[in-house]
Nucleic acid binder design. Structure first.
Lengths: 183, 183
DNA sequence: GTCTATAATAGGATAGAC
DNA sequence: GTCTATCCTATTATAGAC
């Protein structure tokens, strides 16, 4: 039971931080080697497909995080306020209160093979939120519209907060999103 | 009067499209050479500082665009609706109705030296919008808050629209932003 | 699983002719 | 201002020992 954290998972956690911050092209294998303390060959042992493999692993990690921290909490029992607050709380943590970029947005740049995974993650997020609204009395089209705007607002606030080097826009966005979802 | 477009300006226009799509790290000099039809030495003739110089030129271009197409139209005479609509119309064009990324957001990735210019551009945008609101009867703190949220929403909608490969979220965001600014 | 060493290529940048 | 040729470094990726 005293097993250490499987190296691969620890590496994925590091990769997550690197890719979200610098995007796919902005991360080099040498960077990863330095950040993880693992030699290049070790990295290729864990990710035989190289950098593309690393990106895929990180996006898969993000997908699982989304299921556990957003989709499930939104679907679980409770009032709309309780469900929405669970999501917002998880997002606040994920994004470091507005100081850390969204991996999905960062992976969207360029010709990236990741685009399909990003698309399905964003779609899943919007749908899960819309479903929670429908569950609590909002019409389906209205729920989709509000959910899309909510996700947009959060993504945009992360950009503005990071550009201005000020967490306030993100805090403000969370409050604004909450109000418009509970309205 | 029959002067051709100065090559440098034409190159900057191309660079704008490349950087907004792929970010700083995602664009190589070879890419630029291919896209513009100019050899590398020609590029270095126009941009002695290399790629960093290209990025700076593009951000300067963006700054001028913002002054001409957003700041000035927002400051010019007219009702709040007229001013806001001028800005939204310019943005709709710039962003191709939601299909083209924001250069500022794309240049935000990584350790980029561009961060200062991105910051001042976003700050300028928010301030110009806030000023138009104050001019038309909104209190200063409320104007800043609404403006920040408006810019966030537009930036976020661009991400969601591109992720989902669907312009609808952007259209929806423009409408939502308009309503909340005119409210 | 991890390391050292190395190959192969792409990327940024310059020299010098025209 | 643009081209061809070239340099140097960084980058991706692999080989093979331990």
């Amino acid at each position: 039971m005293s097993e250490a954290i499987p190296p691969r998972d620890a590496v994925v956690a590091q990769l997550f931080e690197m890719f979200r911050r610098s995007g796919f092209e902005g991360v080099s294998i040498s960077d990863v080697s330095e950040a993880t303390g693992l030699g290049k060959s070790s990295l290729y042992h864990h990710f035989p497909g190289g950098k593309a493999d690393m990106a895929a692993a990180v996006l898969e990690f993000a997908r699982m995080w989304l299921e556990a921290e957003v989709v499930a909490p939104l679907a679980a029992e409770g009032s709309r306020a309780v469900r929405v607050d669970r999501m917002l709380s998880a997002l606040d943590t994920l994004y470091g209160g507005g100081s850390k970029p969204c991996l999905l947005a960062s992976m969207l740049l360029g010709d990236n093979a990741s685009k399909r995974m990003v698309k399905s993650a964003i779609a899943r997020w919007v749908s899960a939120l819309a479903e929670a609204l429908v569950d609590t009395g909002v019409s389906a089209p209205e729920a989709r519209a509000r959910s899309t705007i909510a996700v947009s607002q959060i993504e945009g606030a992360l950009i503005v907060a990071r550009a201005l080097d000020d967490k306030a826009p993100f805090r403000q966005a969370l409050a604004s999103v909450r109000a418009s979802l509970l309205k």
